[in-house]
Structures are given as structure tokens and as C-alpha cells.
């Protein structure tokens, strides 16, 4: 199959494979991610979904927003579910019971279902080498159950299980760098993307579908309820996350790191933190050290990523 041309005007003529009428909150980032992923390709797709916002609001009894075969079984096992489907498909094709239509397999999970609860299933599926793609839409907390901290929650964020108070200033730990952990599995393709850079995201999806084996993609998905921001700034915040290097866009293909897009000018992290109510306490007098600490972590991560890319000569 030839790779689909990524021209907005051509894409707009096509049909969405994720329907309207789903019950995600107004201004949610996750449906934007899903629609861009499904739009990037014409391959038939089968998806599994971990429990999370996306799952509960896209498939409410009698209704489904998906126009592709889709399955949900539990919170922790989206990767196991899709690897089972993939193995069954391969077996049926081999036995001659099914015609091979070049079906692609995707598992969608939120950061809770990927970083924490679904991690062992994900790690296992990657190690077994199934021909599948796992896409994590990372909104940085368990938003579906009411904003509890996850290991993807950034340093300093105020959530219901790490509330910012007089003694403890929000989450004390830095976020887990899952993209790098997945790269350490030695799988052929790992990427980090953002819906604000749709062209970059769709190119990565297209590239991943041409690679056989397990793939992982981490995509930022702003959540205005949990981030305590406005309903209209999902894309604006995703853009700021990229420009401040909080969420760098890169890919690791066969162990070689490449930064796929660099901001023209690296903005200070406060530009990303300021519009979000979950970081409000960090701007209170006396809490400057929190901002400095958060900035230092982002700088160190960005520095490390640049060095890694430079090592491979893939600036």
C-alpha cells in the first residue's frame, strides 16, 4: 500500500474513523489524538483500549464512536488483549482460514493504564515481539476517576491524591520517562508526538505501520479538567509543551535517537505551567524553588536528549 499523502485539504475529504457523539469532555485532547492516528493511514485497523476516559466515553452501552473493530476487556491488559488478537489473526491466516488483508493492530491507553496499571502487560507484549502498536495518550493523571496522581504526573502538580497544601507542595516526584523505558526494550520503533504538530504525529504513525514488530508511541493529550485550564486551550498547551521542551518530539528507530522537530526558540517552562491551575501554588511567593526545580529537570532531560541525538549524528 502506498503511504497516504498528508495534505490537509485531501485529508478533510476523507471519512473520520472516530465518530462524533462520543462523550469526552468539551475540549478534550484525547479524541484529537485518536482521530489523527486513524486518519494517518488507510490500512484496516483493529484496536484494543485500556480502561480510561477514552474507553468509558467512546463506548457507552448501545453506542460506540469507533468505526473500526474495537475491544475493551480490563484496565491493565490492553497490550495483552491486542497481542492475543494479533496472534490469533496470524494463526488464522497461516491456517488459510482468513484472507490476509494487512490488518494493523493498535492498543490505546491513557497514562494510568500505560505507565502504571498496564505496564507489565505492555512490557510483556513488547518483549514477545507482536506486530502491534501501543499508543499512550498522556494527560498526566487518572482523569477519568477524578484526577489522582499517576507516575506520568509532572513534578509539582496538584492532584486529589497529592494535593498542594501548606506542608507538601503537590507531587514531589518527577514523572517517569516511559518513552525511554520502552526504548530500553530494544523494540524497532519508539516515538513521542503531540496533536498540535499533527503532521509530525501522522508521519510517525505512517512510519510505524511500515515497520514489523512492536511499536510504542507516547502522545501528549491535554485535559482541561485535570490541568485546570480553559476548555479551548488543548492545542495551545500541547504547542507550549513542545516549545518549552517539556514534551520534546523525537523518535528512536532501531536504537538511533532522532529529534524530529525542534522549537525555534526554547521558551521558559513557566509559559507552560502558568495557564494551568494545577501549578498555581508554584507561583505563590516563597515557592520559587519549585519552579526552579521543575525547570532544571526539563533542562537536564532536554540536554540529555540532544546529546543522545548528536551522538548518532541525527540532530
Amino acid at each position: 500500500m502506498t503511504t497516504k499523502a498528508l495534505k490537509l485539504k485531501e485529508l478533510a475529504k476523507g471519512e473520520d474513523r472516530f465518530a462524533h457523539g462520543h462523550r469526552m469532555c468539551a475540549g478534550c485532547g484525547a479524541p484529537i489524538v485518536v482521530k489523527q492516528v486513524l486518519m494517518a493511514t488507510d490500512y484496516p485497523i483493529i484496536a484494543a483500549n485500556a480502561t480510561g476516559c477514552l474507553e468509558v466515553s467512546s463506548c457507552i452501552q448501545q453506542f460506540t464512536a469507533w468505526k473500526i473493530p474495537w475491544m475493551h476487556s480490563a484496565f491493565e491488559n490492553a497490550a495483552a488483549t491486542i497481542s492475543g488478537i494479533e496472534a490469533m489473526y496470524r494463526s488464522l491466516v497461516k491456517q488459510g482460514k482468513l484472507e490476509d488483508k494487512n490488518v494493523k493492530f493498535i492498543a490505546f491507553g491513557g497514562d494510568g493504564g500505560t505507565y502504571d496499571i498496564g505496564f507489565q502487560a505492555l512490557s510483556g507484549a513488547m518483549e514477545r515481539g507482536h506486530d502491534m502498536m501501543y499508543i499512550c495518550y498522556d494527560n498526566g493523571a487518572y482523569m477519568n476517576t477524578g484526577i489522582q496522581r499517576s507516575s506520568a504526573t509532572p513534578f509539582g502538580a496538584d492532584t486529589t491524591t497529592c494535593p498542594a497544601g501548606d506542608v507538601i507542595p503537590g507531587k514531589l516526584q518527577n514523572r517517569k520517562d516511559l518513552t525511554r523505558i520502552m526504548a530500553a526494550h530494544g523494540i524497532p520503533y519508539v516515538a513521542q508526538a503531540s496533536p498540535a504538530n499533527w503532521m509530525d504525529l501522522m508521519k510517525k504513525v505512517q512510519k510505524a505501520f511500515e515497520i514489523k514488530g512492536p511499536k510504542f508511541m507516547n502522545v501528549i493529550a491535554p485535559c482541561n479538567r485535570g490541568w485546570r485550564s480553559r476548555t479551548d486551550d488543548a492545542i495551545a498547551l500541547a504547542k507550549l509543551a513542545f516549545e518549552t521542551c517539556y514534551w520534546p518530539l523525537y523518535e528512536i528507530e532501531n536504537g538511533i535517537t532522532k529529534i524530529t522537530a525542534k522549537p525555534k526558540e526554547k521558551k521558559p517552562l513557566v509559559d507552560f505551567l502558568k495557564p494551568q491551575g494545577r501549578f498555581k501554588h508554584m507561583f505563590a511567593p516563597g515557592n520559587e524553588y519549585l519552579l526552579e526545580q521543575a525547570q532544571a529537570y526539563v533542562d537536564a532531560q532536554w540536554e540529555r536528549l540532544q546529546k543522545e541525538a548528536a551522538f548518532w549524528g541525527e540532530e
Binding site: A19, A26, C59, I60, Q61, Q62, F63, K67
Partner: peptide, 17 residues
Amino acid sequence: SVVLEAGSSAKFKTGTW
């Protein structure tokens, strides 16, 4: 709990929100 009709969420109009 199988939903047999693809994209049936379109029957639920969210415009009232």
C-alpha cells in the same frame, strides 16, 4: 455487550452540552 453498529454514537447528540 457487543455493539454491532459502527459509529452509532452519532445517535447521541452532544450539542446540548
